[in-house]
Design a protein around this nucleic acid. Sequence first.
DNA 1: ACGAGAACCTGTTTGC
DNA 2: TGCAAACAGGTTCTCG
Length: 279
Amino acid sequence: MPELPEVETTCRGLARALTGQRLIRVEQRRPDLRFPLPPGFAERLSGRKVERIHRRAKYILIDLDDDTVLLMHLGMSGRMVIRQGRANTPPAVHDHLIFEADNGACVTFNDARRFGMADLSDKGSLQDHPWIAPLGPEPLDDGFTAKVLSDALRGKRTPIKAALLDQRIVAGLGNIYVCEALFYAGISPRRSARTIPGRRAERLLPAIKKVLHEAIAAGGSSLRDYVQTTGELGYFQHDFAVYGREGELCFAGGCSTPSQIRRIVQSGRSTFFCPGCQR
DNA sequence: ACGAGAACCTGTTTGC
DNA sequence: TGCAAACAGGTTCTCG
C-alpha cells in the first residue's frame, strides 16, 4: 500500500516523535517479517539514541548514535503508529515490532500481510546495501529531470506503466501514483516506454512531481490499511483522478467525449486510465 | 537480457 | 446467507 507519499508522511511523524530520543526498550514479537530479522535485532537497537529519520524511495531510514542505520519497508500493509506510553494497550494481532523511547513515545510496527522488511546496516555502507544500491533517482530531487527520465526509458520496450513501477528507473512510485501521473501527463499506460523520451518526458516529469507533492500535503492516501503515525487517515484518496474510478467519467477539461475511466491489467496489476485524454 | 507471471501472506470485497 | 474466488498500496524469483 504505501508508496513514497505514505512513507514520507510516516517518516515525518516518526521524526517528530523520536529524533534525539533514546530507545529504552525494543520488542521483536516474531523472528521474521518478509525475511528473517538480523541476529540480535532488538538488542542492537535498545539503548541507542535516534539521531535522524529520513527516507530513500519507500524505505524508512533511522540513523542511530552508534553508526548503525535501521532500514524499514512497509510492504503492502505495514503501518507505524505512535502512542504515548503502552501500559494499557496490549499488542494487537499483527504488531510485530514495538519501540519505546525515553520520552514516553511508543511506536508499533503492524503488518498483516508481512511483506514489510527490516534490516540493520552500518552508516558507511548503506549505499551498498542490497535494498538501496539498485534504486534509481528520487523523483522529488532537483536532479530528477526530463533528461534523466528520458535516458532511463530510452530503448525500453516495456509499457510506460511497468517502467515507472521499476524502482531502478525512478524510486518511490507505486501503482496509484503511476496511474495518476500518467493521467496528468496525458500519456497512455500502454505506450511503449521508448516513445516517452523527449516531449512526453517533459510532460511526465512535472506530472510525477505534482502528484507526489499533493499527496504528501494531503497526508498520503488511505485505501484500506494506511494510517499516519497519529492513526489519522490520509486524504489524497479523495483526489484521485483515475485510480479506483473505473466506469466513472473523466473530469479533465480537455477530455473530448468525456470518456469513462477504464481498468485494465498490466503485468498482473490494475491500471486505471482515461482512453479519451491519455494517448 | 528482458519482460511477464507467479509467489510471498492475510484480510476484505465481490460474485455466484 | 454462505462460500469461494478475486483483489489489495510491493518486491523478488523463475521461466520463457
